[in-house]
Design a protein around this nucleic acid. Structure first.
Length: 349
DNA sequence: AACCCGGGGAC
DNA sequence: GTCCCAGGGTT
């Protein structure tokens, strides 16, 4: 038990000297002076950071907090504005749940985030990790965070041979045993910083690791073999066609995708469902011009090859048209933006 | 427990 | 190309 207290104390000492700066983070010296972070900021950053790197999140976090400075502002926002602001960040269910959660916090919690793990866990888009992160970082509660970084650190520190994801309960027990009652918020950020900057997936910088002398993996020399993982399935390739239509007045023919499923709730170019073979499904009865080049894109679990068709459409063409001055490619998910970028080189205006 | 769900950077 | 990322929801 003496050893465990040493571990957290040594990591906090390292964090005091090496904490990375982030727009949502309260630095350790400020925290020691009683400054606490805004729970709204911590919550928003943690939602954005799910499966997403700090570098990618920064500009989105600044944009969201500029557009919606408080959870009340966000709760009052229009759905389509939030989805457009999220475009490009990926995993769009996060944006829908972000808005849902803001509205629940305002309606059921008086606009104040609950501070305990159990209450946070009930909110949309908040799972075990995010509940622990918000309760520890924003409210200094002794909750163990277990993300990809901590899984890697724990599995190396103790040479856990059980492969992920089956090892998660075991890793959670190890992480909980290390979480201190003193400065749990800084400790949570410290152990994740350690995984992100020193205990990296490939070629970890063990020579400068504050836990070097405690690490079983380091002692055995096989730290890079952890964590063990169950092999993943190969990605299939799907095919489809995207129709980029522009009306005589410059407006674009788009469609709002269904709330559930791939790119849910986002704008996109019309077309049939993607499959083993590309299917024609022109959204207007006119002469569509196929382009020589395809759009290629990779999603979480498949590769996609999209053929592009372009056409000029008459003013009486039915459908969801967005005026040229209201159309911004940055409102589109990346694959749809790729389609536009390719099509526009072939369009006259 | 297994599957679905983006996008980008490092290698 | 592969792997990874401050994971959650659904079935």
């Amino acid at each position: 038990m003496r050893d465990i207290a040493d571990l957290s104390a040594e990591l906090l000492e390292w964090y005091d000297a090496n904490a990375r700066e982030m727009p949502w983070r309260t630095a350790p010296h400020a925290r020691k002076n009683g400054v606490m972070p805004d729970p709204y900021h911590i919550w928003m950053s943690e939602i954005m950071l799910q499966q997403t790197t700090v570098a990618a999140v920064k500009e989105y976090f600044l944009k969201f907090t500029r557009l919606w400075p408080t959870v009340q502002d966000l709760a009052n926002a229009a759905d389509e504005d939030v989805m457009a602001a999220w475009a490009g960040l990926g995993y769009y269910a996060r944006a829908r749940n972000l808005l849902k959660c803001a509205r629940v916090v305002v309606a059921d919690h008086g606009g104040t985030f609950p501070n305990d793990h159990a209450a946070l866990l009930k909110l949309p888009g908040i799972g075990p990790y995010t509940a622990a992160a918000v309760s520890s970082i924003a409210f200094d509660q002794a909750q163990a965070v277990l993300d990809g970084n901590v899984e890697r650190v724990m599995s190396r520190l103790y040479r856990v041979d059980t492969p992920l994801p089956a090892a998660k309960p075991e890793l959670m027990d190890l992480a909980s045993a290390l979480t201190p009652d003193l400065r749990p918020g800084d400790y949570a950020q410290a152990v994740m910083d350690l995984g992100a900057t020193i205990c990296t997936p490939k070629s970890p910088a063990c020579g400068i690791c504050p836990w070097m002398k405690h690490c079983d993996g380091r002692k055995a020399g096989d730290q890079a073999d952890y964590p063990k993982k169950t092999p993943k399935k190969p990605k299939p390739t799907r095919h489809g066609i995207a129709y980029v239509g522009q009306r005589e007045d410059g407006a674009f023919l788009l469609e709002r995708r269904p709330e559930k499923g791939l790119l849910g709730g986002m704008l996109g170019w019309p077309g049939a469902e993607w499959g083993d073979v590309a299917q024609e499904a022109p959204p207007a009865d006119t002469n569509w011009t196929p382009l020589n080049e395809d759009v290629r894109h990779t999603f979480t679990h498949f590769h996609l090859i999209l053929q592009i068709r372009v056409a000029q459409l008459p003013m009486d063409c039915p459908g969801l048209f967005i005026a040229k001055q209201d159309f911004s490619p940055s409102d589109l998910p990346t694959v749809m933006r790729k389609c536009f970028n390719l099509a526009k080189t072939y369009m006259s205006h």
